[in-house]
Each structure stands twice: as C-alpha cells, then as structure tokens.
Computed example of a mutant assay.
Amino acid sequence: MKRSKFSKLVFGILFACVLSIGGSASAKKIINNTDVTQTITTQMLSSILEDNREFYKQGVVADYIPELGKMDPKAIAFSVVKHNGEVINVGDVQKRFTIQSISKTVALMIAVQERGEKDVLDKMGYYGTNMPFNHFANLETTGKPLNPMMNAGAILTTGLIEGEGDKPLQKILDMIRYITKDNSIEYSEKVYLSEKETGHRNRGMFYLMKNNGLIEGTEDKLDNYFRQCSIEVTAEHLAKIGYFFANQCVRYDGDDRYKSSEMSKLIQSQMLIAGMYDGSGEYARNVGLPSKSGVGGGIMVSVPGRIGVGAFSASLDASGNSVAGYHMILDLVNKLDLNLFK
C-alpha cells in the first residue's frame, strides 16, 4: 500500500515536470514565432521613406497618358496595415493618384466570383511573361491573352463581368470602396478621357479579342476598363487591398463576408508571377512577395497571412513600376526578413 502511494507520488511529480517542460517549450515557441511585423512603427516607415525619397530621380512620370504626366514626381507615401488591422501611414498620405493596373486584382476577383475560375482562366492563362504590360503577347497566335495582369487579359476580365453599360465598373468601384471602407472613392473623369483618347493599343487588343470571339458587345466594355484604371486612391487604400488579399479576402477590420482562401491564393499567385509586368521575375527574386503595380505610381503588396503594404511615387522605371516605391518595399522586406523564399 505504501509502495503504491509512493509510486503514485513519483508518477505525479514526473508528470508535473513533463507539463512544466512542455509549457516552457510552448512558451519559447510562442516567443520565437512572434510576428516580426508587429514591430512596424511610424518611425520605422518614416526612416525607410526618407532613405529612399530621392530614387524618384531615377525614373520618369508616365507622360504617355497626358493627365498622368501632370503628377508631382516628388510626392511620396508609404502605408502598412498590420495583422491586427492597425494602419500606419507616412509621407504624402492624403495624396490621391489613379489606381491603374492594381484595379486588375479586384476585377479578377469579381469575374471569378460570377463565372468561376475555370471559365475565366480558360479564356486566357496563368502564364508569366517578359513582355511589357501593353504587349499583344500571343493574341496574334493563340488568340488568347497570357494572364489577367497584362492589359489584354485585364480588358477581357473586365469584359467578362456581368452587367450592361457601366455596371461592371460600378461593381469594381463598390468592391474597392468596401475593402477600404471609403465610400468617397471615385474615378477621375479627366484621366479616363485622357486614357480613352490615347489608348489605341488597348483598343487594338479589344478588337482582336472581339474578332476571336472572346469579347462580345461594344466599346462600352473597353470604356469600363479605362474608367477602372482611373479610380483615385491613396497609399493607405492600397495597403488595405493588399491586406485583404493577404488574409483570405477578410477586410482589415475583420469583416469576412467575402472570405475565401482559394480566391486569396489565386489573386496572390497572379500578382507574384505577373504583377510587376516584365520586371516580375527580378522583383520576385529580390522582394519575393505578391505585388501589383500601376503606372500611376502605386505598388500594392500582400504578405501572405500577415500584412498589406501600399507605396506611392509617380516616377517609374522602364517596366512601369515606381522606382522609389520599389526601394521602400525592398527596404521593409529586408529589415523584417519578409521574403517568402528563405
């Protein structure tokens, strides 16, 4: 009887020790797995912005669209939405600029919601490219765009959104307003008209795809594309969109009405392989994060499962990507070791 009690006592002590050791190990694991993005501060972002401000001198504003050529090349902004939904902004945070090609991610989401991924992507492809964003790519050969991030694929994507007239545009605009929680977002009529007047290559792509049976209807569908590119946003708006796609399409405040891990994976994968146009390969090597740029000077970044980042500087490199924006993002990635390819 005494031996039995003694055995139970010894077992109890050993069990308690195991729990204690396990608890310590768990505590260490929690400490070691603390998300380093929690350490992002206004001071950190301000320092990164100032360190990279002068890179605008190495690029040029997109003056092939007359209204975009009026952008101030010295304006710069940087924004992060942390995993807990906290927003940190530095620089010219109130400066609005046109979203341009970053709108393609939202248009793709809507088209896939309505028609299914197979229907949409069968009409184009998942392919990357070393060609510029406005290249005809293989439209003349296979008759299909390469991916939804190049202009041809994006024009087709918007054309696939259901609704007559400007209904597809309103859907894109409403989704951007929802993601950012900002109903004041509108498109610039001046930029839209400037894009329409000079968008001859885009018009050629539209009619090639119409000839190939991919698009039906009139140039109203192309006008919706021009208008969606002319939607005006801030760096903070981009960070919120980046956060949305990084976190299974859950909004930064926790609203999960569109939650979808599959949609999140689709959008981020397209951003990773083609979001920075013909610079996507080099960008993936150096930054290693799903990102989407626009010739208005914005770059939107998703750090999968973690944060969203928005950068703005209107001066662009040869691929149409913001020079200072790229360097700010690269600095943040290197400081926090955010590159997916460890």
Rank of each mutant, 00 (worst) to 15 (best):
M1V: 07
K2H: 13
S4K: 15
K8H: 07
G12S: 10
F15H: 04
C17Q: 07
G22V: 02
G22R: 11
S24M: 14
A25S: 08
T34G: 00
V36C: 06
T39H: 03
T39K: 13
I40S: 08
M44F: 08
S46Q: 15
S47N: 15
L49Q: 13
N52E: 05
Y56V: 01
Y56D: 00
K57P: 03
Y64I: 13
L68V: 13
G69K: 13
A77P: 06
V81N: 00
G85H: 14
V87L: 12
V87W: 00
N89S: 07
S103R: 10
T105G: 04
T105V: 10
L108N: 09
Y126K: 04
N130W: 03
N134H: 15
H135G: 12
A137C: 04
N138K: 13
L139K: 09
K144T: 14
P145W: 07
P148G: 06
N151C: 01
G153L: 08
G153N: 03
L156Q: 03
T158W: 00
Q170T: 13
L173Y: 07
Y178T: 11
E186G: 07
Y192S: 11
L193A: 08
S194K: 09
T198N: 08
N211Q: 13
G213L: 02
E216Q: 14
K221Y: 02
N224T: 03
Y225M: 05
S230V: 09
S230K: 09
S230P: 06
I231K: 06
I231C: 05
E232S: 11
E236S: 15
L238P: 00
A239N: 02
A246V: 06
N247D: 13
Q248I: 02
Q248A: 14
C249H: 04
D256P: 01
D256N: 12
E262Y: 10
M263K: 06
K265I: 04
K265N: 04
L272N: 05
A274S: 15
A274Y: 05
G279K: 14
Y283F: 15
A284G: 04
A284W: 05
A284T: 11
N286R: 15
G296T: 03
V303R: 08
G308R: 07
G310Q: 09
S313K: 05
S315N: 02
G320C: 05
V323T: 11
Y326N: 12
I329K: 07
D331S: 14
K335N: 12
L338T: 06
L338D: 09
